[in-house]
Amino acid sequence: MKTWILGMTALTSWAIAGCSSSSGAPATGTPGTGDTDGSTTAAEAGAVSDASSSGDGSACTTGTIYARLGGHAGIRGAVNAIVKQELLDPDIQTYFFNQVAMPIPAGHPSADQIEQCFTDLVAATVGGPGESYPPDGGVTDDGGTFMCRADMTQIHAPLLISGGTFDKFVMIAGQVLTTAMVCPDDISALAGALDGEKTAIVSPQYADAGDQPFPGTTTTTDGGASDGAIEQ
């Protein structure tokens, strides 16, 4: 469970560190959600196989997490889908500035390379057969080779990520996985994993600050519950 937690946390932390939408091979599979009007449904979260759908609930108690997520292809699809949604958020996308620049600044990985690393990490930590992280020799595509990294603090420290930004990232990831009908217990495991690595990803001086684009400030958020109609 601990390695799974680390892996899934790395999943989203890599995304926030510079992962962007992939130009690589699309994931296979179909969305597990209904499509009431025939229009194309959201994204590649559908790479989660039917076997992993929470459907009638029985599929969520069979097999391994790796299998329920659809294996390597399914995990890659989930990564792609989450990153695309994160990229569409005006705040979160500012942390992906290198991946959306054209051309990508020298020394920085491409979106596809980030997602390859990300997928390998998650697949390895959930015990996928034959999966390993970091992959020997890094990940290679037409743009060259990138050596995947594993130190979450080192990766995220320059990004000055606030607690509020982290929470929003988790929410968006949870939204994608929920839409894809990922098993609730698996989502719980992922949420717990993310929360467990929050201190490695969030900059301490920004821990109490709200959701904000890069570079943020240390402004704290207003606390206290609200009835939603009138801010107290």
């Binding site: 949604q85 569409l88 959306v100 620049a101």
Partner: peptide, 20 residues
């Protein structure tokens, strides 16, 4: 936000749009 400009924000939007 010295790194982001409307051009890069649009790049981000267009990267994600095809599947959305």
């Amino acid at each position: 936000g010295a790194h982001m400009t409307p051009k890069e924000m649009e790049n981000a939007r267009h990267i994600a749009l095809p599947t959305e």
